[in-house]
Amino acid sequence: MRKAKATKVTLRFRMLTTGKETLYLDYYPGIPNPKTGETMRREYLGMYVVPLKKRTGELQTNKDGSHKYNEEDAETIRLAEIIRANRQNELSKAEIYTEAEAELLKAKERSKGDFIAYFRDCAKDKKESNYNNWMSALKHLQDYTKKSDNTTIKRFCDIDLLWCERFRDYLLNVRTHRSDKVVLSNNTAAAYFLKFKIALKSAYKYGYLPKNINEDLKGIKEKESRREFLTLDELKRLVETPCTNPVLKRAALFSALTGLRHSDIRKMKWGELGEDNGKFTLKYTIQKTSKYDELPISEQAMQLCGERQKPDALVFDGLVYSAYANKALAQWLGAAGITRDVTFHCFSHIKSYYSLGTRELQKLSD
């Protein structure tokens, strides 16, 4: 709250040639005229009084030097003083509280915004695979809002802890969008709910929520999951099995030979791959941690990259994270006789699962 300006309102009297006094308010310093916007010092009230006179014609005065008036004029002055006091209060209130009240008004307007739309905007800031995960979480949030509130929007001011906790319970029991017979896995529900909590925290930070609900909202605890690994025999079969998406196949095998994640392989550029005396090195920034790293690349892994292109060209141009790519991966695995739930991420685990010097692994691409 800022300090009040020293705007003082004084009731003054101005003697007219008719012998009457006109009453006006004196503002110091001046204030903006509500009609013209220009600075004004005086506001005439349209009220008049007549000072009492002695028989000699001189004006009667009180001990403090002020003029004397009859009862009717004294009442007029009293009303003028009430107007002065009101003006003073209005000015003082405006000067002291304008900024605070303006901020409260802005906060009130923000609180009427749609949290669902805000969540969607949060998702737009994410990249590819993470974006898809946010959008999946958004779809469940929309379904829950429709079920709980029978609407497609959720105002920030209508969000409370109970509504958030019920969304958590909803995720733990809801079916997946791909199958109405399969319940969302615990860890997937935990991932979606974490994004929900992140959006709540962000909304509070930027003034859309008056309270940090996220602080009191417990998340979903992830369960330790079994990590899937492909065997060397399975990898050999995959090498020999055609894939409808050739760039996906090359990238998956490259991941198996290097341990690189999908996100790092996807953004690899030829300028990051260097050669010195027949030895290859990838100099890159890890997307997940934003840390710089230099990784030795085997000759077999380099063969999967294809012919060298311009420095700014993507090594695995066309590699994307999408439902189409996931379907192609599943079909490739199925054609190789692999029926387990294997994702692209499983390929990056292979190099750490087996000894880094395993010759069979290095010869997979031969």
Rank of each mutant, 00 (worst) to 15 (best):
M1D: 13
M1F: 08
R2M: 08
K5M: 08
T7Y: 12
M15V: 08
T17M: 01
G19S: 03
K20W: 11
Y24W: 08
D26F: 03
Y28N: 09
N33A: 09
Y48I: 03
V50F: 09
T61D: 12
D64Y: 06
N70S: 02
E75I: 05
R78H: 10
R78V: 11
A85D: 13
A85S: 10
A85Y: 08
R87E: 15
R87K: 15
E101T: 05
L105G: 09
E109I: 04
E109N: 01
F119D: 07
D121Y: 06
A123K: 00
N133A: 09
H140F: 09
Y144M: 15
D158F: 00
L161I: 13
E165F: 02
A190D: 06
Y192W: 00
L194S: 12
G207K: 04
L209H: 01
K218T: 11
I220Y: 07
K221Q: 11
E222Q: 07
S225P: 06
T231A: 09
T231C: 13
L235I: 07
V239Y: 04
T241N: 03
P242Q: 03
P246K: 05
R250L: 12
K267P: 07
K269R: 13
W270M: 02
L273C: 04
S290H: 05
D293N: 07
L295N: 06
R308F: 02
D312F: 07
L319D: 00
Y321N: 11
A328R: 02
W332F: 11
F344A: 01
S348K: 13
L356Q: 02
L361G: 00
